[in-house]
Design a protein around this nucleic acid. Sequence first.
DNA 1: CTACGGGTTAGAGTGCGCTCTAAGTCAAGG
DNA 2: CCTTGACTTAGAGCGCACTCTAACCCGTAG
Lengths: 141, 141
Amino acid sequence: MKIGELAKRSGLSAHTIRYYERIGLLPHADRDQSGQRDYDASILNWIEFLDRLKATAMPIREMLRYAALRERGVGTEAERGALLEQHRERVRAHVAELQACLLVLDTKIAGYAGKEQRMKDYDAPIPEHRKPAGTRQAGAR
Amino acid sequence: MKIGELAKRSGLSAHTIRYYERIGLLPHADRDQSGQRDYDASILNWIEFLDRLKATAMPIREMLRYAALRERGVGTEAERGALLEQHRERVRAHVAELQACLLVLDTKIAGYAGKEQRMKDYDAPIPEHRKPAGTRQAGAR
DNA sequence: CTACGGGTTAGAGTGCGCTCTAAGTCAAGG
DNA sequence: CCTTGACTTAGAGCGCACTCTAACCCGTAG
């Protein structure tokens, strides 16, 4: 498979694939007789896994550490496992934080919904009191 | 409260606070007689909310839209609500994606743990009665 | 008086992760 | 033979969100 095809199948651009190879995220691809990269389909599994790491906001530096261990192969399993476990904890913490934020958003949105509801109760675009007096001094901007 | 104090209390740097004011994320602060910013404690609520938006990866462009509506005040509630609802959906989707990634990580980590277990079975002085491991197959990466 | 520890501004620099450009090579089709 | 289009490389450029620098001002303590 040439780079264009891999780009289509992986969802990465050819530019990005070359960039990943340059920095070491993807293994150096074999070239054909005219110097063009020729990929084996199995690379797609690795790219897919990289996508997961990216989706979970692992910085490229750390993906590189993982990729390097993977290249070294046998004997690096414990280290790779530890690296992923560490990352998993960060992701879990991040999910927890997002869920806390969702609660805040829910509250805020409920507040706006409540206001809108009260507006509808009055049924008109309320012509009166646009500001409760005296919140701001004149001037400013 | 001066900017240094607000920095301490909000967790933002003074640089960042000025930057936020410049781009419009924070309202233009009143100045004292010598031109220094003087903040009301209420600004902390807004900064805290901005932090939530940031934590949920809302781009600054969109925070600016929200901030602008907030400045306009009364009459923008529906729009603000809609904006937050849209954002909430994105955050929910993101959480779902992260959870899917966590499953993949779990599987991968379990794989490494399995390997390590097999290593130890061969390798280490087995203390007392350990279960014979190996029901897993090699390969899968 | 002077030093110090804040503050002010405009604008330059940083780190990340791509993304694109320029200039060239190559294989196949008309 | 010539064009087309996909590929090659080194390296420049971009968008984001800060982060810092330079040069300056101001009020207070010693």
